[in-house]
């Protein structure tokens, strides 16, 4: 708590805004069943494509479902997918990158060429190919997005590890008799973790976007499961009659991605040890 009271919220303004937006999204996802006024699945054919009103603050969709409730519930999918995908990317990428840097030579060559192979595909295309071979489900979407992230994290982890290993304090650590694993964990990891954390926050934004893109294409969350992506896809057909169908999930997506990006940038400024006071 000492940390919180010392933290300069004004100086890290963007970070503060990022935390607020991300916090809102996470709270919405966690409390979705409590805060949403209706069930996201309940149909009401008498209330199809209703404009926003006191009963339905953000209107209803083509099957009479409450758009606000669906948007709130969709945040669950987004956060879930992003969390799993980024974890897969960070863990897989860090292990591959650190091992490549630490052992060097042939290991490095093979691992990094493999990563470059993955990197050379456009993300969406790779996701579609992976989904096509894994089958369309939300779990497979998480894995596919995670795999897309691995090369980026691996390269970052490798670069920072290589840089850290050339530092004289690694030599100094050897001179006080530390073992390889202790050097990796105590001396190298703290130097590697900061850029990875920042990258993870940015990747989170990208994962949310990718999940929506996959769902938009019908490869991610399957109806009636609400997702910002498939809501946008549905809304596309009713742009003229019921623009609220697209606007709400679009805005949610926009702010969520913005929030994670601000969080990433803010973290980078804050975690740089040379800027600590």
């Amino acid at each position: 708590m000492n940390f919180l009271s010392k933290f300069n919220w004004i100086r890290h303004g963007l970070l503060t805004i990022g935390i607020m937006i991300v916090g809102t999204v996470i709270v919405a996802a966690l409390t979705a069943p409590i805060i949403s006024p209706y069930s996201p699945y309940d149909l009401d054919v008498t209330m199809m494509l209703q404009a926003p009103s006191a009963d339905h603050w953000l209107g209803t969709d083509e099957l009479g479902r409450d758009v606000l409730s669906r948007t709130i519930f969709a945040s669950q999918i987004s956060i879930q997918v992003a969390l799993v995908a980024v974890s897969v990317g960070v863990i897989g990428g860090t292990i591959i990158g650190v091992l490549a840097a630490y052992f060097g030579g042939v290991t490095d060559l093979i691992l990094m060429r493999l990563m470059e192979l993955l990197f050379s595909f456009p993300a969406i295309l790779l996701a579609i190919v992976l989904m096509a071979s894994l089958g369309t489900s939300i779990l497979n979407a998480m894995i596919a997005i995670g795999i897309i992230f691995i090369p980026g994290f691996a390269r970052l982890a490798r670069a920072t590890t290589v840089e850290a290993m050339q530092q004289q304090y690694i030599e100094a650590a050897r001179s006080v008799g530390m073992s390889h694993s202790r050097i990796l964990i105590i001396e190298i990891m703290p130097n590697v973790i900061t850029p990875l954390l920042v990258e993870a926050a940015v990747a989170f934004a990208y994962a949310v976007l990718l999940e929506s893109a996959l769902s938009f294409l019908g490869l991610g969350a399957q109806p009636p499961e609400p997702s910002w992506g498939n809501m946008l896809n549905t809304g596309r057909g009713f742009m003229a009659q019921a623009p609220w169908l697209s606007i709400m999930p679009g805005m949610a997506l926009f702010f969520c991605v913005l929030g994670f990006n601000l969080l990433g940038d803010g973290l980078r400024d804050m975690l740089d040890p040379h800027l600590r006071d």
Binding site: Y169, E171, N191, P273
Partner: peptide, 12 residues
Amino acid sequence: PQDALRSLNPTG
């Protein structure tokens, strides 16, 4: 060591 600054880990 010769160069103390570079021999101390900046993150610790």
